Amino acid sequence: MNSDFGALVGGLRAAAWLRAPVLALLSLLLPLAAAAAPECRQMSHAGDAYTVCTLRADRDDIRLWHSDPDDRLYGGFTAIDSALGAEGKRLAFAMNGGMYHEDRRPVGLYLENGKQRGPLVTSDGPGNFGLLPNGVFCIGDGTAAVIESRRYAESPPKCRYATQSGPMLVIDGKLHPRFLVHSDSRYIRNGVGVAPDGVTVHFVISENRVNFHSFGSFFRDVLKTPNALYFDGKVSRLYAPSLGRSDAGFPLGPIVGAAEPADQM
């Protein structure tokens, strides 16, 4: 055996000897990456301020909550966080996740862990919800999407969780056709957009009052989401422990958020 060949064999043996501990280390690190906390940050655009919390549907445990197994309304972030304790988890992020009636029933389609609580609505109507096109936020197995409601009706995707709201903010890269640049209808607003990869999800709440055109433009021009959906205004609230934030107020209907292990650092 010449010296070069001997060195090669020795290197291969060393690599084989090191492989097991390296793989063991990776097996410890990968779950930590999979359980990473949502990234929440402050951003601005055209003089308006926003808080953006970005999650990944292929990594984060994104869910919708409305009522517990006994059909008691959660209504807020604290109740959901307490319920997650039974699973050894806690609430990592949340915001109101769709419009609701006075009794807190969801307006339009609502699907929670495969159980449908409300029907899909594709007809126009009063208020922001009926300002067609409206849409559905769908959480699948490792994927997410914002889908225009009539497209959803034509070919329903497989969603574990889904909430219908309206109007759509961005539709195939274009703003909703009814939005006016200088509209004086300004509120604290929140919504969701999904990146072209189908896994990166941006949840946004404005920090000052904005109109629909400004809000939609933030999703289109800054976050680059081809489709984005409005959740609500006036009642918009955020739970983001990483920012030390837990907005209080009267009981909510649907709530969207993410769960993480309770012992996560």
Rank of each mutant, 00 (worst) to 15 (best):
F203T: 03
D58F: 07
G98S: 12
S3A: 14
K158P: 00
L223M: 04
G108D: 03
S82F: 12
A195W: 07
T54K: 10
P254N: 07
K174C: 02
E102S: 13
P38A: 05
L55H: 00
P21T: 11
I171V: 13
L84C: 01
E112Y: 07
S165M: 12
V136L: 09
F203M: 14
Y100V: 01
E39C: 04
V256D: 00
N96V: 04
D221S: 13
A49F: 03
V107D: 10
P254I: 01
L111R: 15
S185M: 09
H202S: 12
A86C: 02
D4R: 14
G88A: 10
G173E: 02
F179G: 07
G166H: 08
E112I: 07
T78F: 06
A248R: 14
L55M: 13
V210P: 10
L73V: 05
L109T: 04
G166W: 01
P31H: 04
P119V: 14
M95D: 02
A153Y: 06
A37R: 15
L169V: 00
G191H: 01
E39H: 08
T225W: 02
A7F: 04
R150V: 13
V121P: 00
I80P: 06
M95E: 11
P156W: 02
D60T: 10
H45G: 01
G253Y: 03
G47L: 06
G253E: 05
P31L: 05
D172M: 11
F215D: 00
M1Q: 06
N190T: 03
L30Y: 13
L238A: 11
S155R: 15
H45E: 07
R59V: 06
S183K: 08
A145C: 05
S236Y: 03
D48S: 15
S246E: 15
V52Q: 05
S3W: 09
A228F: 12
D68C: 07
K224Q: 09
V181F: 12
L109Y: 15
A162M: 02
F5C: 03
